[in-house]
Design a protein around this nucleic acid. Structure first.
Length: 730
RNA sequence: GGGCGGCUAGCUCAGUCGGUUAGAGCGUCGCAUUCACAUUGCGAAGGUCACAAGUUCGAGUCUUGUGCCGCCCACCA
């Protein structure tokens, strides 16, 4: 027999085992069918990997995601299902561009405009390529049994075809339109961002009460007030009942007298401030809505660089960050400041993708209409029959309401509905360079939207690119070949599970439901498994500034991938944040070593090759142990099927260590010492039978150590790889 | 302002949608041990399940209220 090391050495083992798996081809379900691992008509089981952003390296959250998905995939594969897990990466348009721009500025003090679109894109692509390679390396290190032959990128040619096709179809249905609406403008990155990409920051500031004719109006932003010629009051506010809607009056304002118009609208909160406000429709979403309702004039005050326009008179050209104090001084000199509330907390909108402070602007952009009726031609969603009229908003709501998709944990369904209720039209165009170019061409007054550029001269393509979530929304089916009706699409879509962090429920999960609903008339997945954030042992977010980041590769290096996986599974119920410490990972390393040494003990006490199919005469006690194992096996199967991985993992851990090792093995020792024929043979058989079953059950959780041991098992039934062994059916 | 979640052993969390003396891991304490593993074994201490009321034969589990802690959303300018 081959010499077996005293302790499990993950470093020596893991890369070798992964290579073996990869070379076997069994990550690819087509190979599994060809080699008889899965029957051609077997049930399919598919997961599309949430594509990591090519902005850097993988963190512990990714590691948790990979551990969960790989467990589901490996169990399904061993259960004989046609099992597919598709790898891929996300170009992450704005995040990647922001990273490269920032590096470029740090290194060479240059901006993207200094390089020009083409040169800059080359730089981004080089960065993305490097980042991609790092990520792929990390995916392998975790033991992920991904089908590399089907790898995709959200910005590759096939996905670009899917994006342009999707855009055109929605455009032709009137669900994508171009309109001048108020958008979130980031003056720093010079682009719009969607509502969901905004991060609100609390800021201590002042609140100014200004005299506006007979009114006192409140504002936190005096620098936007130049063009304010409407004063808005609540129709039920008795304090102002002598003023009628539409009434005009002359008021003295920042740069001289203006004509003010009274507007009555219920959007005003009577309790707040003085109950009177002036509006700036060009630079505030609420004000914009009021202006739309009453068809009021809108005037731009701040340019796209964040500087005041000529309307500001003497302040024109001044950056808004410097203007406020000067304007307040002027108002004070003119006696227009009633009083100032010195302590006021207001919320500042910032671009969460590494950009600056958002300045709302009215701009022509492309939008997805979420409330516009359309006819869903072919539907597999019972709540919305084929040929019936619906809206995207209704589509994504009813899909979940009618239980076509199960969200785990269930409570996130409420969060999901709440988000839908607040959903506005989705701004999908961005003024950045890295991403899918909007597939629309212009010539004079003509506009052409299509999959390919139009025939003829002088057509200019829209310079904007699409929100990264537009292409991610198509991910479950674009990775399977859509818009072509491929065999993969028929076999693996809808996918079985979508597993991701709860923090991107809106960004991504909801948009996939929207896109799949519209384009395929079906759900993108049957189940949503939401994992929590991985935090440090004190429950803090891991961040560079806190210096508390645990790097998955470091953990794998020190304790092995199996231990790292277990530490992210056990004690981590879906939807709950995971507190992780190095001690926890170390604890599970001890467990992998325990598996190793139990196996080593059994191997050292077994002679020759045992035929597990030939069950010797067992004592009643031994039969009882087999019953116990059967129960564990059934529970594990059930727990995995119901996504209770934390329970399955814990039960297996407990059984293996404290039942199998501490009790069953210990009690078997006399049998080996006395070496009387029959008892020894039955004990040998029993221990090997239990071990073989446990290795199979544990394999999805700790694939490396179990595979390595399996390769040494002296049993007749051993096929090539544990990875494709049959799941215990007892 | 609206919504969601958490509060169970010193720490981290389970408790599979009501059922016998409430569990695990880590930690603590004591004992053992060159026999697969010190990355070990055996044993012990430790909880009025946040609080209050209710439903029930029976509540950590269901209902209502309260208190902290956390998260998400929102058009108080």
């Amino acid at each position: 027999m081959k010499e077996i090391a005293k302790a499990y050495n993950s470093k020596e083992t893991e890369d070798r085992i992964y290579k073996m798996w990869e070379e076997s081809g069994f990550f690819n379900p087509d190979v599994c069918v060809k080699k008889g691992i899965a029957k051609p008509n077997a049930e399919s089981y598919s997961i599309v990997l949430p594509p990591p952003n090519v902005t850097g390296t993988l963190h512990m959250g990714h590691a948790a995601m990979l551990a969960i998905e790989d467990i589901l995939i490996r169990a399904a594969r061993m259960q004989g299902k046609k099992t597919l897990w598709i790898p891929g990466t996300d170009h992450a348009a704005i995040a990647t561009q922001a990273k490269v721009e920032s590096d470029l500025y740090k290194k060479e003090k240059k901006t993207r405009r200094d390089l020009g679109r083409e040169e800059f894109l080359k730089l981004v692509e080089a960065f993305a390529k490097e980042s991609h390679d790092t990520i792929i390396h990390q995916l392998r290190k975790m033991g992920s049994s991904l089908d590399w032959t089907r790898e995709a990128f959200t910005l590759d040619d096939k996905r670009n075809m899917a994006v342009r096709t999707a855009f055109k179809r929605m455009h032709d249905d009137g669900l994508i339109y171009r309109g001048a609406r108020i958008v979130n403008w980031d003056p720093k990155m010079q682009t719009t961002v969607s509502d969901d990409e905004i991060e609100w920051i609390e800021e201590q500031g002042k609140f100014y009460y200004l005299k506006y004719g007979p009114f006192v109006i409140g504002t936190s932003r005096p620098e936007t007030k130049f063009g304010d010629k409407y004063v808005v009051l609540h129709p039920d506010d008795n304090r102002y009942k002598q003023y009628k809607h539409g009434q005009q009056l002359q008021v003295e304002w920042i740069n001289g007298p203006i004509t003010a118009t009274v507007i009555k609208d219920t959007a005003v909160d009577m309790e707040f401030g003085t109950g009177a406000m002036t509006i700036t429709p060009w630079h505030d979403a609420t004000d914009f809505d009021i202006a739309q309702r009453h068809r009021l004039d809108k005037q731009q005050i701040i340019d796209f660089q964040g500087k005041l326009l000529p309307i500001a008179g003497e302040f024109a050209g001044l950056h808004i960050s410097k203007a406020r104090q000067l304007i307040v001084e002027k108002l004070q000199n003119k006696g227009l400041v009633d009083h100032i509330d010195e302590k006021y907390t207001h919320r500042l909108a910032t671009n969460s993708r590494g950009g600056g402070i958002i300045e709302p602007q009215i701009k022509e952009q492309w939008f997805v209409a979420v409330n516009k009726p359309f006819t869903l031609k072919e539907s597999h969603i019972p709540a919305i029959p084929s040929e019936s009229e619906t809206t995207l908003k209704e589509l994504i709501r009813k899909t979940v309401e009618s239980k076509q998709i199960a969200i785990l944990p269930e409570r996130f369904e409420k969060t999901y509905y709440h988000w839908i209720d607040n959903l506005r039209d989705w701004c999908i165009s961005r003024q950045i360079w890295y991403g899918h170019r909007v597939p629309v061409w212009y010539r004079d007054k003509e506009t052409y939207a299509g999959v390919q550029a139009p025939e003829g001269e002088k057509w200019e393509q829209d310079p904007d690119t699409l929100d990264t979530w537009f292409s991610s929304g198509l991910w479950t089916f674009s990775t399977l070949g859509w818009p072509e009706q491929t065999q993969d699409l028929k076999t693996y879509h809808p996918t079985t599970v979508l597993e991701t962090g709860y923090d991107i429920l809106f960004f991504w999960v909801a948009r996939m439901i929207l896109m799949a609903g519209y384009h395929t008339g079906n759900v993108p997945f049957r189940n949503v498994y939401l994992h929590g954030l991985v935090r440090d042992d004190q429950g803090r977010k891991m961040s560079k500034s806190l210096g508390n980041i645990i790097n998955p590769l470091d953990m794998i290096e020190k304790y092995g991938a199996d231990a790292t996986r277990l530490s992210l599974i056990i004690g981590a119920a879906p939807g709950n944040d995971i507190k992780l410490s190095e001690d926890k990972v170390r604890g599970y390393k001890y467990f992998t070593n325990k598996i190793w040494n139990v196996s080593r003990f059994i191997l050292l006490n077994t002679e020759g090759e045992v035929d597990l199919a030939k069950k010797p005469q067992l004592t009643p006690k031994q039969e009882q142990l087999l019953e116990e194992l059967k129960k564990l096996s059934q529970e594990t199967t059930q727990d995995i099927a119901n996504f209770r991985l934390y329970l399955a993992g814990e039960k297996l851990y407990h059984y293996f260590w404290h039942r199998f090792a501490d009790v069953i093995i210990e009690e078997s020792k006399p049998a080996f010492r006395q070496s009387t024929g029959e008892e020894k043979i039955s004990t040998q058989w029993l221990l090997l039978a239990i071990l073989t079953t446990l290795l199979k059950l544990l394999h999805p959780f700790t694939p490396f150590v179990t595979e390595e041991i399996y390769q040494h098992l002296p049993i007749l039934q051993r096929k090539q790889l544990l990875m494709v062994e049959q799941w215990p059916i007892l």
